[in-house]
């Protein structure tokens, strides 16, 4: 039982990490970034390429991968999203669909379809550790748990206490009012995209280390999207219960019924929540009405 809880918790942490980017971008710009899964995939490849370039110094490689993600976030915003500001909401959403197909194609072209093992680049094997008699966690399981706590906690604190974070919250409420108060909306939105891409990279690197990385890794994003919707698209705190519900249900079904059925669980929970409470567990009704 304890192993069941731990395994589900690890999966929940991975989903939480992977879904953060959806929520961060949606909160600030009301854009559902359907390329987020591919950004997770790309983040994994950043780790795969950059860490060996630095002679396998993992921490330095991860930081450089985050820096690259930061720049990528800025580029994505200024090249693709910024020109569509003011257009109907479906335009940027369609754009992110195009972007996801493009990123997947580019990854396939550069790295091929062969799944890559990130553990080889990281030079830290995913070794099992006996925590208690009935509990084994691997190195990257532990890393996933810590990363989820670090990013989730970090972003919540950042939004609550930092000047930029408060500006981001203001921008999320109303672009017009925030800009009238002197907030540079463009800079804030660009920063939001960069932070979202960094969280995607963290999820990509950890997923790549725990399983592998391939152009198909973007599929993780579909499950992460269901977590974001279940939690409430505008709510970062909502990610926590949503990730736990989705992960425990998925893992339980996979373990006791069959993995085939488990794949539909995140979507089934998402549909259920959309039917009963369209604004998600911790989202607000006003948010949906505003859209």
């Amino acid at each position: 039982m304890i192993q069941f809880i731990a395994d589900s918790l690890v999966l929940a942490c991975l989903y939480a990490l992977a879904s953060m980017g959806f929520v961060i971008i949606y909160r600030s710009s009301r854009i559902l970034n359907l390329a987020h899964g591919e950004l997770i995939m790309l983040g994994g490849y950043f780790g795969f390429v950059i860490i060996p370039l630095l002679g396998g110094i993992t921490w330095a490689g991860v930081i450089l991968a985050f820096l690259c993600s930061f720049v990528l976030g800025l580029l994505l915003y200024f090249l693709f999203i910024r020109p569509l500001m003011g257009e109907p909401l479906f335009a940027p959403i369609m754009l992110t669909i195009g972007l996801s197909i493009m990123l997947k194609g580019i990854a396939g072209f550069i790295w091929g379809a062969d799944p890559r093992m990130l553990t080889l680049s990281l030079k830290i094997p995913d070794a099992p550790h006996q925590i208690f008699t009935d509990l084994i966690l691997s190195t990257y399981d532990i890393a996933i748990i810590f990363a989820a706590i670090f990013f989730l906690g970090g972003i919540l604190l950042f939004l609550k206490y930092s000047r930029l974070g408060i500006q981001m919250r203001a921008a999320a409420e109303s672009h017009l009012l925030a800009s009238q108060r002197g907030i540079n909306i463009l800079a804030i939105l660009a920063l939001t995209w960069s932070i979202a891409v960094i969280t995607a990279t963290a999820a990509g690197i950890l997923y790549g280390a725990s399983v592998n990385i391939s152009p198909e890794t973007g599929l993780v994003g579909i499950k992460a999207l269901s977590v974001a919707i279940v939690g409430g698209m505008g709510s970062i705190v909502g990610i926590i219960p949503a990730a736990l519900i989705v992960a425990f249900a998925e893992y339980g079904v996979s373990r006791y019924i069959g993995p085939e059925l488990s794949e539909i669980i995140p979507m089934a929970i998402m549909l259920l929540v959309l039917l009963i409470r369209p604004w998600g567990l911790l989202g607000t009704k006003e948010e949906v009405e505003r859209l």
Binding site: Q3, F4, D7, V10, L11, L14, Y207, V211, E216, T217, L219, V220, K223, Y251, S254, R255, G258, P259, E260, S262, E263
Partner: peptide, 17 residues
């Protein structure tokens, strides 16, 4: 026998079983 759907991302539960 453990059938998995194409596109499965995590088989930890199968491994545990």
């Amino acid at each position: 026998m453990s059938p998995i759907p194409p596109g499965a991302v995590d088989l930890t539960a199968v491994a545990a079983k």
